[in-house]
């Protein structure tokens, strides 16, 4: 095992599913890790599970509801403080993995549609807040192959007319890949990972009835979360990789919409507005 505990990786949505598997794999590979989870209790459980195996594992967990932008700011503040207190650590990678599905149209504190805010805007804003710490580090987003079968619904991006869980999900994942494209244009090295179909509880949280039943059957044919976790570690180990979208540690093809500059730039500008930020100001300053 290479000793690279001075390299810090942040993983959001890391108390279960793919995120938790990534944390384990990163610790195995000798990285230091900050995990982020939406519930204090699951953060504690995750920490206990890890330290039971290895009491000195270099991992801490922070609790933040990333659908709420104020909590993202608070999280960023805590991470900065942690790095100041541990000057030997260097932020090597931010993994924006937190995401979810919701059966129903719900609004977040800012009045945005829940999946759009959690799956897309949270990573967008957290990345912005981490850029000054990242320096030559990288950013990874958890996307999904489902992003290939959709486009951005400009006429009603928050699905206020007629909400359908999968349409909102697919669009939010397309947003992830588009964000990656635009970040690279701005000199921030970013990747999207397609984890494939994985046995996680994503379709069980915040869902009811038929959708949950469907997910329980569907996920049986999925892989264990350890499989996609390898792709994340692969990218952490090779931060200079050339691709944009990875599946099974290999460059894979993505939705052609992502290559339309007009689309990605429009999304980026809207996202900046919805977060009340401007990447340009931050980078030049």
């Amino acid at each position: 095992m290479k000793n690279q505990t001075d390299k810090l990786v942040i993983v959001t949505g890391s108390t279960s599913g793919i995120g938790f598997a990534i944390v384990l794999k990163l610790l195995e590979s000798g990285y230091s890790v900050i995990g982020v989870g939406s519930k204090a209790e699951s953060c504690q459980n995750a920490k206990i599970k890890i330290t039971a195996q290895n009491p000195t594992a270099p991992v801490v967990f922070y609790n933040a509801n990333l659908a709420n932008q104020q909590e993202i700011y608070a999280l960023a503040h805590n991470i900065k403080e942690y790095l100041t207190l541990n000057p030997n650590l260097k932020l090597h990678c931010l993994i924006n993995n937190a995401g979810g599905v919701r059966d129903w149209y719900m609004t977040t504190s800012e009045g945005y549609e829940y999946q759009f805010a959690l799956n897309h805007l949270s990573g967008f804003l957290l990345t912005y807040l981490m850029v000054p710490l990242l320096k030559d580090g990288i950013v990874i987003f958890t996307a999904s192959s489902s992003h290939k079968h959709t486009r951005i619904h400009w006429q009603d991006i928050m699905f206020q007319k007629w909400y359908f869980v999968l349409s909102a999900y697919k669009q939010s994942k397309l947003c992830n890949v588009m964000t990656v494209k635009e970040l690279n244009k701005r000199g921030i090295k970013a990747f999207a990972v397609d984890p494939g179909l994985v046995k996680t509880d994503i379709g069980n949280k915040g869902m009811t009835g038929i959708t949950r039943w469907f997910w329980n059957i569907h996920k049986k044919s999925g892989t264990d979360p350890e499989v996609p976790a390898q792709t994340y570690v692969y990218l952490c180990n090779r931060p200079k990789s050339l691709g944009l979208y990875y599946y099974n540690s290999k460059i894979a093809s993505y939705n052609k919409e992502v290559d339309k500059d007009s689309e990605t730039m429009r999304l980026f500008a809207l996202s900046e507005k919805l977060c009340g930020i401007s990447y340009k100001e931050r980078i030049s300053s």
Partner: peptide
């Protein structure tokens, strides 16, 4: 009305009729 995650849990606990009597927030507001 499924306005937040806790309410979704409660709807779920009511089983089929919980879900069937739940209205869509986006439609009700419009």
């Amino acid at each position: 009305l499924a306005t937040n995650p806790t309410v979704i849990e409660a709807i779920d606990a009511q089983g089929f009729f919980g879900k069937a009597t739940t209205n869509r927030l986006e439609i009700v507001s419009r």
